[in-house]
Simulated scan of single mutants.
Amino acid sequence: MSDNLEAQALLPTVAELNRRRLFQRAGAGLAGVAAMSALSTGGMMLGSQSASAATITTPDIDGDIFNFALNLEYLEAEFYLRAIGQTLAGNMLVTGTGTQGTVTGGSAVPFQSAAIQQYAQRIAVDELSHVRFIRTVLGTGAVAEPTINLSTSFTVLAQAAGLITSGQTFNPFADEISFLLGASIFEDVGVTAYAGAARYITNPDYLEAAAGILAVEAYHSGSIRTLLADIGAGVAFDAISDLRGALSAQIVPGGEAEQRMLIPGNDYNFVANDSNGLAFRRTTAQVLNIVYGGGAASGYLFFPNKLNGAIA
């Protein structure tokens, strides 16, 4: 991984990662074969639930919020699917209203640990299911997948966070440790986005659906945080977390800072919550400022042509 995020390019704590870690006991067998089969056959569509039984048919606030969420789910799904060698286009889930874009970057990660590969497969299944579910809820009002940049965006963020210097690059698909750090960028954002939008959802069925997705995203976030703590990557994670907090503060100054992983005497802060023990909440503007990397100056980062839909 010559100019990727490697030992000499990272903060000292990450440079001392113990690659023998506890996952050696997982062996080479992969229990994710069934999940992969379900992905390729499209067999992971969620069952009939209250929110999927009735689609959003009018352009109301609920539809706007779900389309905002769908854009973010497109991003997460492409990240995880490409890490295991698939795409949303391959699952025929990219069309809709607005301008359908293209996705650059992303490739299958050369996983060394069977356990981390299974984590990636599991989360990929969930994100694919989220995209399919929200598109079902929105019906013909679902927005198309926008243009997504998975090629240079991570380098921009890594440099801004101080993880690498000018001229170095960060490819989250180059190895499993870089993959986990890349994944950590999305997961906490997803949780805070759903938590922040909850108060504006008017239909209780859709609120219930959003709460269900939020819970799954929170599970993902806690898992990624724990995996990074296991390999001693807390300092690198905290740099990413601090950058997210700074981008959020550009929109809404003050308030509590996003919780870092490393806290005195405990390296396992697997949940990002406030002083009341509640998940952090972000406005749509705060979320956009993170995924846009602060705005036009960064080329809108992950979404070069912005999101599709009313909230963009």
Rank of each mutant, 00 (worst) to 15 (best):
M1L: 12
M1C: 13
S2N: 06
L5N: 01
A7S: 12
Q8L: 10
R19N: 11
G32E: 11
S37F: 15
A38R: 14
S40H: 14
G42R: 08
A51S: 13
A54I: 12
I56T: 05
T57S: 15
P59G: 05
P59H: 12
I61A: 14
E73K: 13
E78Q: 02
G90D: 08
N91I: 14
G96Y: 07
G96L: 04
S107R: 15
P110N: 04
F111W: 11
Q117D: 12
Q118W: 11
A120C: 08
A120Y: 04
A120R: 03
Q121D: 14
D126F: 15
L128M: 10
L138K: 03
A142E: 04
E145P: 05
E145R: 15
L157W: 10
L157P: 02
Q159S: 09
Q159V: 11
A161E: 11
I164F: 11
S166Q: 12
Q168H: 05
N171V: 02
I177T: 14
L180V: 09
D188I: 07
A195Q: 13
A197H: 00
A198I: 01
Y200W: 09
D205N: 15
L207G: 09
A211Y: 04
A215L: 07
H220N: 06
S223K: 04
A229P: 01
G234V: 07
G234W: 10
A239S: 15
S241L: 12
G245P: 01
G245Y: 04
P253M: 01
E256L: 09
N266Q: 08
D267C: 04
N269R: 11
N269V: 07
N276G: 13
N276S: 13
L278C: 02
F280L: 09
R281Q: 13
Y292D: 03
Y300L: 06
Y300I: 02
F302L: 02
P304V: 01
P304Q: 03
N305K: 10
K306P: 00
